[in-house]
Structure formats: structure tokens, C-alpha cells
Simulated assay, not measured.
Amino acid sequence: MNWLLPFLCGLGTSILSAWGVGGGTLLLLVMTLFLGVDQRTAQGINLLFFLPTAAAALVFHWKNGFLDKPTLKSAVPWALIFALAGAWVATAVDVELLRKPFGIYLLASGIMMLWPKKKKPDSASSDEDSKPDE
């Protein structure tokens, strides 16, 4: 019966990830706060959880023509460099130093989700809407 809570957490976070909500963050919180998993181990599990989700999204975006090749060519090298730098920092820095900034990040992102920015109406479409029919 010790498998039930981890199973339900994995199921819930996979459903959230499928909806694009970011279930990995929830998975990290559950593992560190409720299951007693070390933060570095939880981050590693979270990254492994993310890989199939990202791969599936990439395949479907490619099939539907939503990938911009020039953007990919310029973004991928920088992403690899900063991912390696982030991995090095995460393993070189004490876990206790990572907890507070990560908690602040989670709070800030949660607050931003509660109060999203309102989109400004497009001026070109609003001009056409205000023109009388001839």
C-alpha cells in the first residue's frame, strides 16, 4: 500500500502535464514535502518525468507545423549551454541554498497565475470594427 500515494501523485501530475499546466512543479512539491525525498533526487526525478512529456510535445508540434526552424537554430545552442550551467550549479551548491529561491519562484509564479495580464486589443482590428459599413 506504500505505492498508492506516489502512484496517485504521478498520475495527477501526468494529467496536469498533458494539459500543459506544469505537473512537474507539483511533483517536486509532493516528493519533497510529503514523501521525504531529497531535493536533488526530486529534481532528477522531475527532469526524467519531463523528458517523455517534452518529446511527445515536440513530435506533435513538428507534425502540426508549429516549430520555427530559424528560432530553433538560434535557441537550441544557448539552451544547451544554460542547461549544463544550471545542472552544474544545482550539483555544486548546497541544497539549503536552493530551497528558498525555489520557494520564492513558486510563490511568484502562483501569484502571476492568479492575476494574469490582460491583453490589449489589437489597434488594427479595433479600427476596422469602428468603421461604418458603406
Rank of each mutant, 00 (worst) to 15 (best):
103 G>K: 04
48 L>K: 08
42 A>K: 05
33 L>V: 01
86 G>F: 01
78 W>K: 05
60 F>W: 07
62 W>Q: 11
25 T>F: 09
110 G>I: 05
48 L>S: 13
118 K>M: 14
90 A>E: 02
42 A>G: 07
46 N>L: 01
91 T>F: 13
13 T>D: 03
43 Q>A: 11
3 W>N: 00
89 V>K: 00
117 K>R: 14
65 G>N: 06
29 L>Q: 06
117 K>T: 15
124 A>V: 11
70 P>T: 07
47 L>A: 15
47 L>V: 12
62 W>T: 08
82 F>G: 00
102 F>K: 04
29 L>C: 11
96 E>V: 07
46 N>V: 04
97 L>I: 08
55 A>P: 09
91 T>M: 09
2 N>C: 04
56 A>T: 08
37 V>D: 07
134 E>G: 05
104 I>K: 13
117 K>A: 13
52 P>Q: 02
49 F>S: 02
71 T>R: 07
111 I>S: 09
77 P>G: 05
82 F>L: 03
27 L>Y: 11
8 L>C: 14
98 L>P: 03
113 M>K: 02
93 V>M: 04
108 A>G: 03
104 I>F: 14
24 G>N: 01
68 D>M: 03
49 F>P: 06
133 D>Q: 07
110 G>T: 14
87 A>S: 12
91 T>Q: 14
133 D>G: 02
19 W>G: 15
117 K>Q: 15
116 P>D: 13
119 K>R: 15
132 P>E: 02
14 S>T: 09
80 L>A: 08
78 W>S: 06
20 G>D: 07
118 K>G: 14
132 P>K: 04
120 K>I: 13
94 D>H: 06
95 V>E: 09
55 A>V: 13
104 I>C: 15
69 K>G: 06
64 N>S: 14
33 L>F: 07
117 K>D: 15
89 V>W: 09
5 L>I: 13
50 F>G: 02
96 E>W: 05
60 F>M: 01
104 I>P: 13
30 V>A: 13
106 L>P: 12
32 T>I: 11
47 L>E: 09
132 P>R: 01
53 T>L: 03
35 L>S: 10
109 S>A: 10
89 V>R: 00
81 I>S: 06
89 V>L: 03
65 G>F: 10
90 A>K: 05
84 L>A: 08
5 L>M: 09
130 S>F: 08
5 L>G: 09
34 F>Q: 04
98 L>H: 02
10 G>V: 12
34 F>P: 00
56 A>F: 12
94 D>C: 04
59 V>H: 05
62 W>Y: 12
39 Q>K: 06
33 L>K: 03
35 L>K: 01
5 L>Y: 11
25 T>E: 14
123 S>N: 14
108 A>H: 10
30 V>M: 15
2 N>W: 11
98 L>M: 06
73 K>N: 09
11 L>S: 11
62 W>H: 09
80 L>I: 11
45 I>W: 15
93 V>R: 00
